[in-house]
Design a protein around this nucleic acid. Structure first.
Lengths: 347, 347
DNA sequence: ATGAAAGCGCTAACAG
DNA sequence: CTGTTAGCGCTTTCAT
């Protein structure tokens, strides 16, 4: 692969504008205190030469990289069929773009990848990391902590004490579950089942807890473990139908598994919502709106969470903000976003 | 955001190992010609100090970045609900990871983003770019060409002469369409409709051409324009049903729009495949397998295409390869991958 | 085979 | 306000 063509340097711009390198640097970085006449000359020279700063050179001295890593501890097949991942990325990308920070994507497939990712993060090549989809026994947090990389987690961390010691953004999973169950109960349903997510993730555990809060007398046969996938939802629904043919409502831990449930219910000849009411979680539009019947669900602001995570990570980053801050607009280290019930046809 | 903690430098390693910086550099970069005794000392020092090379410093002198940009000219809402994007990314990520090259993700939402992306690419911050989802009038290729960034496109470029002047990886869209149509004809169908993709993308045009090749006498009322989305597929199917209630087969340009068609057919009381046979394109597993009925489709190797693109871009990249190459293992600049029909229930 | 020295392009004191 | 100067950490001739 050929190298990029050599580009004009600060030096060249300085020569052309008849000023020193330092002045050009100031103008390029938008520092105040350069006479407008000179600044204009510099800008013209930049324009004419098509000058673009060399990031490597800049990083070398500033020790900043204007790049953050997004780490997705990809839970197997889940990334597919569930646009969750894409939505998060979109939110993050928007925020980073606005601040002219690059997004370095680190996908992890297997266990060996942990070491690689850890090494990269520890290498100090990015200004921070955004980490998702952590599982309970994941070694990554330890590695990250050791490396001292500023990090914001997507979803409350599950390890002991984790939630108090790190920064994260989450939605109110437990409260959202309450909204779902309350709605179902309000509909007059009495035999409420729950299809969980993978129980090594806090989001799934919290939703289960929320369900239990309001259905304390639910027998274990009313809870079936899923994994946030369609197939998992189907499997769980079959189990549920098998164990409790009289079930009249299902709260699924996400929309994708809810559509799996819908499918099985239809196959089993149950009408939704007449025979069985179904509520999902996420409000993943293409899934929830297109389900048959369309899905009543608990909405969480996924794209917004992505943006927020990026904003939190970059707080105090950048020249302009640095100046503006200082006062004490620190902002919280942990944010839990509210959820909202979205009514459609399934419940 | 705090700066990354200061890490040991080459200098520190050299001091510890009692050698010069140059020697450490050689060992770290795996260059031959260092006595094993010394090399061992250096490696131990590296280990003990936890030394990780500073990429910025390295880039500054080598003018390489060990990073490539992935540009997704995101066609609106399509990225959602269609795991296409995630699969490509996965393939690319695998290949890059294996070569220790970072993936910088550039998502584009609106037109303004073109300028930003162009500027970034032109800035020479990455060693190359992988570009997807280009539309016919996209200014990006021009910008890229001007910037001289090595690039591999995903899908044959559509502009005049583009296909002969740039590197790309594509699947045999036209041949795939032939497979679909032939299958439908083999089933005894006579009134074959086609739901297209967005016709400003070559993949969609090629599939349409393939359809026309084998159904030359198809009236325009048998072709409805879609956009690769579920909603688009539904819209197109309704139109088709309206114009030709006697249609007995549909070839949809991708699986997602095929499932839209399936949904409309079901609503209209048509049985699939008895009344209307349906064939999709992609073999996007979660979509095709879970459709009702499951989708007969034309399979393309999406993840493989991603890997191939990355491999093509990085050909001759890296110290080791540089040495091994030279002979002339150039490899082709344009690859068109074969497709295969996958039979399921819908046709 | 190894070391010394010269930058890569940029920013950040420090002078003036 | 502007210019001068000294590196940031690394690779790479060029000597030895």
């Amino acid at each position: 692969m050929p190298e990029a063509a050599s580009r004009p340097t600060l030096e060249a711009v300085a020569a052309r504008a008849g000023v020193s390198r330092a002045t050009v640097s100031r103008v390029v970085n938008g520092e105040a205190g350069v006479r407008e006449a000179l600044a204009a000359k510099v800008r013209r020279a930049v324009q004419e030469l098509g000058y673009v700063p060399n990031r490597a050179a800049r990083s070398l001295v500033t020790r900043r990289h204007d790049a953050v890593a997004v780490v997705i501890a990809e839970p197997e097949t889940r990334v597919f069929g569930d646009p969750f991942f894409a939505l998060q990325l979109r939110g993050i990308s928007k925020e980073l773009t606005a601040r002219d920070v690059q997004l370095v994507l680190l996908l992890m497939e297997g266990r060996d990848d942990h070491e690689r990712v850890g090494r990269y993060l520890a290498g100090g090549h990015v200004d921070g990391a955004l980490v998702f989809s952590l599982h309970l026994d994941d070694p990554l947090p330890g590695i990250i902590h050791g490396a001292g990389v500023p990090t914001v987690f997507g979803g409350r961390p599950g390890w002991a004490g984790g939630a108090d010691s790190v920064r994260y953004v989450d939605c109110d999973n437990r409260g959202g579950a309450h909204q779902a169950v309350r709605h179902l109960v309000g509909l007059g349903r009495r035999r409420l089942a729950h299809i969980t997510g993978p129980l090594d993730q806090t989001s799934a555990v919290d939703r289960l807890d929320g369900y239990r809060d309001l259905v304390p007398d639910a027998g274990p046969e009313l809870v079936a473990e899923g994994d946030f996938t369609l197939a998992g939802g189907e499997r769980a629904m079959r189990l549920l139908l098998d164990r409790r043919p009289d079930v009249d409502a299902v709260f699924a831990a996400n929309d994708v598994s809810a559509s799996g449930a819908l499918r099985v219910l239809r196959e089993a000849g149950r009408r939704v919502p007449q025979d069985v009411a179904v509520v999902g979680f996420d409000d993943m539009l293409p899934v929830a709106e297109q389900a048959e019947p369309s899905l009543t669900t608990v909405r969480q602001e996924i794209e917004g969470m992505g943006r927020l995570m990026a904003a939190m990570l970059l707080r105090g980053h950048g020249r302009v903000q640095d100046a503006a801050a200082g006062a004490g607009e620190a902002g919280p280290d942990r944010v839990v976003l509210p959820t909202a019930l979205v009514r459609r046809e399934s419940a």
